[in-house]
Each structure stands twice: as structure tokens, then as C-alpha cells.
């Protein structure tokens, strides 16, 4: 294992150039990014040290309360994101020893939250961030009902509540910076970049270090593909992730219904009018009350 790690470090050094491009790509103007070519973040849980650097940086970058000192990841304790924190690290005892797992909004390729939102407050940008727009949201919480990862969080104790969730540091990315957590991670467990390239990189790691990784990239197909991609040494359910999510995107589930609406609008009135005129002149056989 130790040797593997060292080898891996070396390999990582070699690919550092390739990975670096991810960070540089941030400067590219949004318009040039194609629809399926958006940014994502690769989280390699085998590298994560559970130091909470990302949590602290996230809170700072987004003006959220500081992470309490005593609030650390522990095996057996599930910390959850909420209206005060957009990302958390949890510790899990797995078949391969103790590992950490980071959670936050997954930045789905076809987000259920955005399809649910009736004001387009939830919105997938070309960059790949799924953002929440305060001036549009009416607080109906339908996004929370629909998100398969349960990620949008609502300020229940505010008179003008906001939805809190990770937006992959949309503003920072626009300025050409990388997301705060990626910048902060001392273990380099986080890599920001073009999603397609990140998948290639993840595959490369799995192929190069077969003993080290479970042969799945979580997020490649889950919920129709997500911007966040996870690597791990063990099956992902051991790290508290839902592995039963469908591979189709979630908005797909309401498509059939929504597509039928226009035809109902055309056909139903015609049909009703037809029946009406067919029955109009029949002699009233029932007792007429008027």
C-alpha cells in the first residue's frame, strides 16, 4: 500500500501538468464551453485526510458561520449539510479501513432541482455550476422534494429564507479562480476541471493503480451524471452514498407527463365540445329541475 502510494504520488506529479490545465481552464470565457463540456470537481477519497480544510474555506468564501472546533468527522457520526454549511466531511469505517467522504450539492448535469423550480431560481449555468438566484426564488421547496441527494437546504428560521447549497463557487469560477475548497485542500484530493477530462483522469487512476480503487466513478452516471465525481477504495455505499440512484436523469421522470400537456390542451376541448354538441339536442329524458 505504501509503495503504491508513493508510485501514485509520482504519477500524479507527472500528470500535474494535465491537472493544472483544469485550474487554468477557469479563465476561459463561459460562452466557449459546450453543453456537455462543463466544469466539475474530482474528489479522490483515498487522498482525503479529513482535515476539514474544504469546510473551513467554504464557510469563509460563502459568508457562512465558522466551523465549530469540536465539530470534527468521527466514525459513526453522520454530519449533514444544512442551512449553515454547504459541505461536510464524514468518516466511515469500511472493509478497507477508515476513509472520509465529502458531501455537497453534486452539480448534476441535468439537475432535478432546476427542473423542479418554477421560477428558474435554480439554474444550471454553462460553466456547470447549479446556482440559486435569490431574486427569483419563492421558497416553495419543491427543489428539496426533487433533489435525489437532498442537497438544497432551507432557512426555516428566517423571515426571508434562502436556499443554501454548494454552487461550485460560481462567482469565483467566473473570475477565473478555482472553487474555494479545491484551492484549500492540502491533500490535493480535489481537482477542478473540465468534466470530460476529469473522467479521463479518474479512469487513468483506476487503471494505473488497480488495487487501490473500486472500479467505479461515482457521479459518472448517477442521476444522469454529475459535475462532482468521486473515487474511492471501497464500494460507495460503504461511504454513505446512495448507490441505488437511477442512471437516467431525474427530470426524465416528469417528461412523459409534461409532454402530454400540450396534446391534452388541444384534444380535450375538442372532444368535450364534440360530446356536448352530440348530446345537446337529445330530448331531456331526465326530470328537468328548472
Amino acid at each position: 500500500m505504501g509503495v503504491d502510494r508513493r508510485n501514485f504520488l509520482k504519477a500524479l506529479g507527472l500528470t500535474g501538468v494535465a491537472l493544472g490545465t483544469g485550474k487554468q481552464l477557469g479563465a476561459a470565457p463561459a460562452e466557449s464551453v459546450e453543453d456537455d463540456e462543463f466544469y466539475g470537481i474530482l474528489y479522490d477519497s483515498t487522498w482525503c485526510a479529513g482535515c476539514q480544510g474544504c469546510e473551513i474555506a467554504c464557510a469563509e468564501a460563502n459568508g457562512l458561520p465558522e466551523v465549530p472546533l469540536e465539530d470534527v468527522p468521527e466514525v459513526g457520526k453522520i454530519r449533514k449539510t444544512d442551512e449553515h454549511r454547504r459541505t461536510v466531511i464524514n468518516a466511515y469505517e469500511t472493509s478497507q479501513g477508515e476513509f472520509f467522504m465529502k458531501t455537497q450539492c453534486m452539480q448534476c448535469a441535468q439537475p432535478a432541482c432546476a427542473a423542479a423550480c418554477l421560477t428558474k431560481a435554480m439554474y444550471k449555468t454553462k460553466d456547470g455550476s447549479v446556482i440559486w438566484r435569490e431574486n427569483k426564488c419563492m421558497g416553495c421547496r419543491y427543489c428539496m422534494i426533487s433533489c435525489p441527494f437532498d442537497m438544497p437546504k432551507f432557512e426555516y428560521h428566517s423571515t426571508n429564507p434562502k436556499i443554501e447549497k454548494c454552487d461550485m463557487c460560481f462567482e469565483r469560477v467566473k473570475e477565473g479562480k478555482v472553487p474555494a475548497c479545491v484551492e484549500a485542500c492540502p491533500a490535493e484530493a480535489l481537482t477542478f476541471g473540465n468534466r470530460r477530462e476529469l473522467i479521463a483522469e479518474a479512469r487513468r487512476r483506476i487503471a494505473e493503480f488497480p488495487g487501490m480503487y473500486h472500479d467505479v466513478i461515482y457521479g459518472e452516471h448517477e442521476a444522469g451524471g454529475t459535475g462532482w465525481l468521486y473515487l474511492s477504495a471501497v464500494p460507495f455505499d460503504e461511504l454513505g452514498l446512495n448507490t441505488k440512484l437511477q442512471k437516467k436523469s431525474y427530470p426524465e421522470l416528469t417528461k412523459g407527463f409534461l409532454y402530454s400537456v400540450p396534446s391534452v390542451f388541444v384534444l380535450a376541448p375538442a372532444l368535450l365540445l364534440g360530446i356536448h354538441s352530440a348530446t345537446k339536442d337529445k330530448p331531456a329524458k331526465e326530470d328537468d329541475n328548472e
Binding site: 421560477t119 419563492m138 416553495c140 432557512e155 426571508n160
Partner: peptide, 14 residues
Amino acid sequence: LVLDLGRPLKIINP
């Protein structure tokens, strides 16, 4: 439904 909205004034948006 409006009572249940967190930000009812924004109902104007849709």
C-alpha cells in the same frame, strides 16, 4: 400554498 411559501412575495415571478 402561499402561507407555506418561504418567500411569498416572489410568487409574482412565475
